[in-house]
């Protein structure tokens, strides 16, 4: 199952992330891919907000590789940028990827087992100065359910805008 979202600003990208974050129940693996500057960390800031964390707490984890945050659910923010390739069994990654917490992994494609794992793929494509296409793909039944819940939000709000209808802001 696929869902495609459009964002016209960093603020909207964050708002999409926040929406997704608020729908998570724990144990989900978010697999983020996209070029440098696409907005992966920005999206994770939004997810963190959806988990009742302050977005200021989310810094780029490039240097530290793994950052742990305590929100409504624990969030493990992982960045594989500095690694050319890595296996699940290295760095104790297994404990982070398969837990009751949320694991948000930037540069997920650098994980050798990337193709085999159940996860929610989040691919962010740079379309213009501020424009981004966010492609969500569910790999595994629990993730299909997450995307269904996300789509129900559009039905409820009557539009595919990242903000709830009460504070709808377009463009």
């Amino acid at each position: 199952m696929d869902v495609i979202l459009h964002s016209n600003s960093a603020r909207e990208t964050k708002a999409w992330g926040r929406r997704l974050g608020s729908l998570l129940e724990g144990g989900e693996l978010l697999a983020l891919t996209g070029d440098l500057g696409a907005g992966k960390t920005c999206f994770v800031k939004g997810v963190a907000k959806g988990l009742s964390l302050r977005e200021e707490e989310i810094l780029s984890p490039t240097f530290t590789i793994i950052q742990e945050h305590r929100g409504r659910l624990p969030l493990y923010h992982i960045d594989l940028y500095r690694l050319e390739t890595v296996e699940v069994e290295e760095l104790g990654l297994r404990e982070y990827l398969f837990s009751a917490a949320i694991a948000a992994v930037e540069w997920f494609e650098r994980l050798r087992e990337a193709a085999e794992l159940d996860c929610l793929e989040i691919k962010i494509v740079l379309e213009g100065a501020n424009r981004r296409r966010i492609e969500l793909r569910a790999k595994g039944a629990p993730y299909v359910a997450v995307l269904e819940r996300l789509e129900q939000c559009f039905v409820a709000s009557g539009s595919q805008a990242p903000y709830p209808s009460s504070c709808a802001k377009i463009g």
Binding site: L36, G37, T41, C42, E56, L59, S60, T62, F63
Partner: peptide
């Protein structure tokens, strides 16, 4: 301080780009 990337990280990533 920074809200996202460190300054040195920006240099490294721009060099990579």
């Amino acid at each position: 301080g920074t809200r996202d990337d460190a300054a040195g990280e920006a240099f490294d990533k721009v060099a990579k780009l």
